[in-house]
Design a protein around this nucleic acid. Structure first.
Lengths: 124, 124
DNA sequence: TGAACATTTAAGCACTTATTTAATTGTTTG
DNA sequence: CAAACAATTAAATAAGTGCTTAAATGTTCA
């Protein structure tokens, strides 16, 4: 397994440590993978659903009413969130309950959401 | 100024503290505002550009070569990042230099990106 | 089994987005 | 001023997204 990076020669030279920085530049693949996580909280509706699931476990119809959204719209977002690994689901009778996943990614996303709301919406 | 929230009555009752949670639920407007920040790092190319600007100040053509992208594509992403307030620019002669903004949002985004790469791409 | 409830899926639509190529603007310097 | 370089903007396009309505699937219980 090789860890070589493509040699990049920049047209201009501004700083001496640019080569060190470029050596650590994440690959396109890694960036796409990480961006996929952030994509989950890049939509207001989905971010709001995730915020709720950071604070309680709930079933689809309750989430839909709380969000003032249709069931299919909520189901669509829950599917994306589950596919990304940020939430998990369990069925109990007729209802399917969703909650935050117990992973480091989910914990980090939870944390950054709380902080960003604190910073950007201090009166909220 | 009123801080009232719309009364929401859920179809099902699963937990007793759901009302407390719903009382703290961020508004749709606040969620859209915060999601707008996360939208900046929800695209792999833009996330990679921002990662670079977290580590150095650079001009457009150098960024384009480093990213192996066209100048207009890079310029497009830089425009979005600047509009969001995460980066700032300065012109020096023919070149325009971009760097991370000195704001709490930018610092938080920087931090969460570093952590997410560490967690999701430990070998990168 | 069949009716009612809960959730998901399918199809379609309006809208957004990332990129390319080409043209334009801004800046320096011969 | 004109040529060269740096960056941005414009137009066009292909792909993706969020939501709606309608249909289908899954589950319970009388």
């Amino acid at each position: 397994m090789s860890t070589d990076k493509k040699e990049i020669r920049l047209p201009h030279h501004h700083s001496d440590n640019i080569d060190i920085v470029l050596a650590k530049l994440p690959s396109q693949e890694d960036c796409m993978q990480v961006a996929e996580i952030f994509k989950q909280i890049s939509d207001g509706s989905r971010l709001r659903i995730l915020w709720l699931l950071c604070h309680c476990e709930e079933c689809v119809s309750n989430i839909a009413v709380a969000m003032e959204m249709s069931d299919p719209a909520v189901s669509h977002h829950l599917k994306l969130l589950r596919k990304s690994g940020l939430i998990v689901s369990r069925r109990d009778g007729k209802e399917v309950y969703y909650r935050l996943a117990d992973t480091r990614q989910a914990q980090l996303v939870h944390h950054v959401c709380e902080e960003m709301f604190r910073i950007s919406c201090p009166l909220g």
